[in-house]
């Protein structure tokens, strides 16, 4: 009996998959996301509504921003590299971010650092991060026969490099300066700073406009460099711009909640499966919605259903990581 039920469910899902157009699926996903958000905001309210709304509201905005950043960055990166297994987050951006923070404290001293205007501080840090990371990519782009995997490997090793330099500097700081640094570095979904949220919203709106305007080009880029050049797309210029966008997204996400490596992989691969189309005009929104559902839904599950005290980021990394291994063992790269 159970086998029959399973088979009938399977067949109806398959039949449904054929009927649902990508636009339909997108709508469905949007509805799910909305539901999850509503549940998140209203479930199990123990304190006053005012407090809950502000607290959860801020957390929700952080979730939404991070979902946008990570899913879009990973998707773009994979299209650029024609590879479904890579994620930009392993390229040491988090280490670079920590290095920038640490250097600022080291160079300016704790007094001057805390005296900096918060907006200015975030803009400076993100800008340094993006410029440094872009230079890394651009310098490698100038080499005529660059190999994408080499680029990524260099990024990873640079990550270790930056991390070690930061560790060195941290050891050389005196305890008061170190605690100032630690406050800055400690990031989580609960504790995102308002100024950073606002800077992020502005940056992401600009990126959103860019995505909307150019999403056709991403489809062509995904065909590979020779084909894209043949079709009149300026591959190197487009890639450079995409790299800057990707580094900004990852930089913002790292500043908001710290390093999140495998979540992007998980989300984007789920999106490939449920989207029903490989065009970016459907893929990008779908991966963002999947990310929102997983993040917000995961948090609801964790906090209210399972009652765990674990950090959400750790669980996400764990699941995403296991998923990555299954992905490699099942598919070819």
């Amino acid at each position: 009996m159970p086998k029959k039920i399973i088979m009938s469910i399977y067949y109806s899902i398959t039949a449904l998959r054929k009927r649902l157009t990508p636009a339909c699926r997108l709508l469905l996903a949007a509805v799910c996301a909305l539901l999850v958000v509503i549940v998140f905001m209203s479930i199990n309210v123990k304190a006053s509504w005012e407090f809950t709304l502000t607290f959860r509201g801020k957390k929700l905005i952080t979730f939404l921003l991070v979902a946008f950043c990570i899913s879009t960055a990973t998707l773009l990166f994979q299209s650029l590299s024609n590879n479904r297994i890579i994620t930009p987050a392993i390229m040491g951006f988090d280490s670079l971010y920590i290095l920038v923070q640490t250097s600022l404290v080291y160079v300016l001293g704790s007094m001057q650092y805390t005296a900096l205007n918060s907006y200015l501080k975030w803009v400076i840090e993100i800008s340094i991060l993006v410029i440094a990371a872009s230079y890394l990519f651009q310098w490698l782009f100038i080499k005529k026969h660059y190999n994408l995997y080499l680029l990524i490997l260099i990024g990873v090793v640079c990550g270790v490099f930056f991390h070690s330099i930061s560790a060195l500097m941290m050891r050389m700081l005196d305890p008061t300066e170190f605690s100032v640094l630690q406050d800055s570095l400690f990031a989580s979904f609960n504790a995102a700073q308002s100024e950073l949220l606002i800077v992020s919203i502005v940056a992401l709106s600009a990126i959103g406009i860019f995505l909307y305007r150019y999403h056709h080009y991403f489809d062509v880029l995904a065909l590979g460099k020779p084909m894209a050049t043949n079709l009149g797309v300026n591959h190197s210029a487009m890639t450079r711009v995409c790299i800057i966008v990707i580094t900004t997204l990852i930089g913002l996400s790292t500043a908001l909640v710290g390093p999140v490596t495998f979540f992007g992989l998980l989300v984007v691969n789920v999106a490939y499966i449920v989207c029903g189309s490989h065009y970016h005009r459907y893929l990008i929104p779908m991966s963002i919605l999947c990310a929102i559902i997983l993040l917000v839904g995961g948090d609801v599950l964790l906090q209210h259903v399972l009652g765990y005290d674990t950090k959400l980021s750790i669980i996400i990394e764990f699941i995403g990581g296991v998923f990555f291994i299954c992905l490699i063992l099942r598919k070819k790269i």
């Binding site: 392993i90 490596t261 495998f262 674990t310 750790i314 669980i315 990394e317 764990f318 995403g320 990581g321 296991v322 990555f324 291994i325």
Partner: peptide, 10 residues
Amino acid sequence: AGVLGAIITF
């Protein structure tokens, strides 16, 4: 190694 690191952290 990163995956295993995530498991260890968890």
